[in-house]
């Protein structure tokens, strides 16, 4: 089973790289075949990615939620799923190279982590594990997509709509105006912020049940709070002070850096109770 997992992991990575290259080339070569190839490869990579999660879950005999390797794989999977949903709904296919680069990077990082399946320690044998991790994955996925769109927003110099062609690919391969992107970023941050809050509340309830303390200033808790507060300031700034444009894009990008530091930086640099590598 482990061997299958390694082969699948390698395949997923390679096919994601292919999809990223295919979509990226479309910026230089105006062939719609590149979009079709990119879509095909993304579909294939996503199917393989789903298969990888299934294989892992079967091998472990549980949902693949219990260590950083599994979390990173599911995080990448949900990020892609949310991005595809947004790309179809809001016609954001032109942002695919950046989104796919992020997912590819996550798979690459996961491939470097230990993959051995260890039995769950007593503290992790709780019904709160699933809701805590699931809310974290949804939050991180939405905030990742928001950061992708925010970075695109920061690189947009003017709000001209491209893709004036009338064929199917061109309808989806257009870069939305910055003002539209800003609205999508906001929507994704609201979604992500809600699940970030659920993540923290379920974590508090679980910690109270396990260790008799709902908050302990553990490095992971501290950085989750920092992340939450960055988005809290953003939401108040936007709704009460009318912040728009590049400022909100910077908030989204910085917020996502805090997410990544909470996930990887804290685990490797500031170990604490959450160091389930």
């Amino acid at each position: 089973m482990i061997q299958w997992e390694t082969i699948l992991l390698l395949l997923v990575f390679v096919v994601y790289v292919g999809a990223t290259i295919s979509f990226s080339l479309r910026y230089w070569m105006k062939s719609n075949r590149l979009i079709a190839a990119g879509l095909l490869l993304t579909g294939a990579a996503f199917s393989l990615h789903s298969g990888l999660l299934l294989v892992r879950g079967l091998a472990a005999g549980r949902l693949p939620f219990s260590n950083l390797y599994e979390f990173t794989l599911v995080f990448g999977w949900v990020t892609l799923l949310l991005f595809v949903g947004c790309a179809i709904r809001f016609r954001l296919l032109a942002t695919a190279p950046l989104a796919l680069s992020l997912v590819t990077l996550l798979i690459g990082v996961a491939a470097m982590m230990p993959r051995d399946i260890r039995p769950l320690m007593p503290a992790l044998r709780s019904g709160w594990l699933q809701s805590h991790v699931a809310s974290g994955i949804l939050a991180y996925g939405a905030l990742a997509v928001s950061a992708v769109l925010a970075v695109v927003m920061l690189t947009r110099s003017e709000d001209k709509e491209t893709g004036l062609e009338s064929d199917w690919a061109a309808r989806y391969w257009k870069m939305p105006a910055a003002i539209e992107l800003e609205r999508y970023v906001h929507g994704l941050i609201v979604f992500g912020f809600f699940f970030l809050s659920v993540l923290m509340v379920t974590g508090a309830v679980w910690a109270e049940e396990t260790w008799g303390r709902w908050w302990g200033w553990d490095p992971k808790e501290i950085w989750a709070l920092i992340t939450w507060m960055i988005y809290l300031v953003y939401l108040h700034g936007r709704s009460r002070f009318g912040w728009r444009g590049q400022a909100t894009a910077w908030f989204s990008a910085i917020g996502f850096l805090a997410v990544m530091f909470t996930l990887f930086g804290v685990t490797y640099l500031l170990p604490g109770l959450h160091s389930y590598k």
Partner: peptide
């Protein structure tokens, strides 16, 4: 850095 929207005319408390 912080762009105040033109549509936003409400008084922030």
């Amino acid at each position: 850095f912080l762009n105040l929207s033109n549509e936003t005319t409400r008084e922030a408390g």
